[in-house]
Structure formats: C-alpha cells, structure tokens
Nucleic acid binder design. Structure first.
Length: 378
DNA sequence: GAGCCGTGGGG
DNA sequence: TCCCCAAGGCT
C-alpha cells in the first residue's frame, strides 16, 4: 500500500472512530442506567466521583455474572463493609459466607486478599499495570477500574465489547483468536475525553441493544457504521468455536441431622471446585454409575433413607446427586461440625449444597422470617 | 493456551 | 427443554 493510501486510510479510520465514540456517548447520556455502583448524572453534576472501592467490588462481582444477580450482593457487601479497610478487617470466612450463591468462589478469596493488599498500601493503584498485579484483577478488570474509577484512557474489552466490535467490523475470525484484533479496534476508538463513560457506554450498548440474540439494531446509535447491519447478518457475530459437550457425573450426598435440627457440615479444600466453601458430606463425583450412589457409600454409619435426587449444572459438567438423610446422635465426627438450624442460611453453602439440603429437609436453608430474627442482608 | 471455575435468566 | 452466555481470571 502506498504511503498516501496508508495516510488516507488512517485518517479516515480515525475520523470514523471519533465520530463513533461521540455518537455512542450521546446515546449513553440519553439512556443512563441507574446501577448501585454507578454515579448518577445528578451526583456527577454535584462533583461526586466514582469510589474506586465500589467500582472494584462491582467489577469483580460482575465477572461472568449478570447485573441482576450482582445487585443484591453488592448492596449487602457495601452495607457490611463500606470501604476497603473494613473489608480488609473482615475474616475471610465472613466474606465467603456473604459470597455464597454468587459462584466462582475463588473471586471471594482473591477479593479478600486484594483488600488486604490495598488497605496495607493505603489506596487503590490508579494505573492499569499496577492494578493488573493485584489478585483477581486481570486484563478486563484493570482496564475497567482505570477507565471508570479514574477516568483514564484504557481499552476495556469484555464480552459485550467483543460482540459490538465483531459486528461493527464483521470479524469472521473465531473469538478466541480474534481478541488481539478486537482490542486493537477498541484502543483506536477510546476517546481522550470521558474514557470511563465510553467504556460503560460500550458495555451498556452490548447489554441492551447489541444483544447476543435479536439485537435491536433499529435503536442502535452505531447502526450506520455497522458492517454486520449493512450486510444484514448481525446475529452471525461473534463467530465462536464449537463447544465441547458436558459430561455427567454422579454421586451421593448425606444430610445428617441432630435432634434439635442442626445439620452436619464440613469445609471443602481451599482450592478447586467450590474451594473453601461449606458442604454436606458426599461421595466422590464419578463419571460412572457404579454403585457409589448407594447408602453403602455413606461416610459414617447411620440409618440412611433416600430423600430424593437433585441435578446441578456446573460450567463443565452436570452433576446428579442422590440425597440421603439420617438422624445422628452424639458429637460431630472428626472433620465435621454441627450447624444449628437457625445458622444454615448464613453458612457458606454453594447453591448445589443448598439444593441437596432442601431435598432432604424442605425449607432448611431458607432465611429466618424477619419476625424471628434480624439479618443484615437478604 | 486450553481447561477449570458457578449460577441464573432469557429465548 | 435445552442451549446460550454474563462487566473473566488463573494455571
């Protein structure tokens, strides 16, 4: 390509990008979404700026997690731990309990470790490179905090942005390989002013207009720029590689109860699946139905009765658990502890374990009624 | 770099 | 019902 052509192409490309960003920001201003971690335009006009602690907390919670699922957890966390110092002062166990049900539990452990580092350091780093070194903060989250909390230019690329960009430019390279190309496009589009709003606007656009299925292209501020819209096939993007099919594992869970309704629990290893969370005793989860799901596999003796069967879908396998129940007398066996009935809802129980307990004792994991007890969060 | 790591909601 | 996938990070 001749130098003149390169220059023309570069100038045209930059002009299109600036215009694109401007129209996106105008759309963002007209369609502001109120979110618990977001500064409202009214607050912003009063001089309120984003709190790096709240931005960090929300971004970690939002990793692979929907906005709706995050809202109540975010409110509970900031009420319980209003700043990073408060979170750093909290026992990890309390953080795991507050995170229970949200998934990807290594996030909770990294969150606590990160809070400790930041509190000791005195404040959050304000550069992408420094943020990137903190536990649980990767390429996306470091860029998001840099842009949103500090309003500094950063290429914020999440699943929404990947979809928007892949449609804007009709990128046919499968997603896993196209990430570098997509990032280059975003870096070129990031405006010098309001980079934080630009990042949020791109993600809002992906969440509300440029959706995975049936995108609302007629409402899109970028429709005139969009290669996929012009070609009429936005739903064909992004191109993804076929996924591996999900294997089925089976096992048995044993819900042991004491006369007063307490349930026997134990803590899982810190690393791996549901790491550091609480569980009822279970057999190993095997790919074969080889008889391990019978009560003969109970980890301790008891009059085990079949209480039901549950299914739970994890990211990379499905699980079927046969649930047994028995009354146990005496002290908890080594490695276990009795959780009183009124404490069950506050334990660090992943959803799959709540399902197992519910199958044996309906209502056991539900939160106490407001009349009988006062809980800090729903 | 590909596999591991949760959960819930929408179409 | 089933499949998709969500404001990803770690190893």
């Amino acid at each position: 390509m001749a130098p003149a052509d390169q220059t023309r192409k570069a100038l045209t490309s930059k002009a299109i990008s600036d215009d694109t960003a401007s129209r996106l920001l105008a759309w963002y201003d007209a369609h502001h979404r109120e979110l618990p971690w977001r500064v409202t335009p009214r607050e912003h006009a009063r001089g309120v700026r984003p709190d790096p602690y709240r931005i960090w907390l929300s971004e970690v919670m939002l990793q692979q997690t929907t906005v709706e699922a995050v809202k109540s957890y975010f409110r509970a966390f900031v009420e319980k731990w209003p700043d990073v110092e408060a979170l750093a002062a909290a026992p990890t166990e309390d953080v795991m309990k507050a995170w229970a049900g949200l998934g990807y539990y290594s996030r909770a452990r990294n969150l606590k470790a990160c809070a400790d580092l930041v509190a000791a350091r005195g404040r959050f780093p304000d550069t992408e490179t420094e943020l990137r070194e903190l536990p649980g903060i990767g390429a996306y989250t470091s860029a998001a905090i840099t842009a949103i909390a500090f309003d500094r230019p950063a290429a914020v690329v999440d699943g929404n942005v990947e979809r928007v960009i892949s449609r804007l430019f009709s990128i046919t390279t499968p997603l896993s390989e196209a990430k570098t190309e997509i990032r280059a496009h975003v870096e070129r589009m990031v405006p010098a002013t309001r980079p934080g709003d630009f990042a949020q606007a791109m993600m809002d656009l992906g969440a509300t207009i440029c959706t995975p299925r049936r995108p609302r292209c007629m409402l899109c501020p970028l429709r005139e720029d969009c290669s996929a819209v012009i070609a009429g096939d936005p739903e064909n993007f992004p191109v993804r590689l076929p996924k591996a099919d999900k294997p089925l594992r089976r096992g048995a869970a044993f819900v042991a109860t004491r006369e007063d309704g307490a349930i026997l629990l134990r803590k899982r290893p810190e690393k791996g699946l549901l790491g550091g969370m609480t569980e009822v005793p279970t057999t190993a989860w095997t790919a074969r139905a080889d008889g391990a799901t019978t009560q003969a596999a109970a980890p301790f003796p008891g009059n085990w009765l079949r209480a039901g069967k549950i299914t739970h879908i994890f990211t990379h396998f499905a699980l079927e658990l046969e649930v047994f129940r028995a009354h146990i007398k005496g002290d908890a066996p080594a490695g276990y502890f009795w959780s009183p009935a009124h404490d069950i809802s506050g334990e660090a129980l992943p959803t799959v374990m709540k399902k197992a307990i519910e199958a044996a004792i309906p209502g056991a994991t539900k939160k106490p009624s407001p009349l009988s007890a006062k809980r800090p969060h729903d």
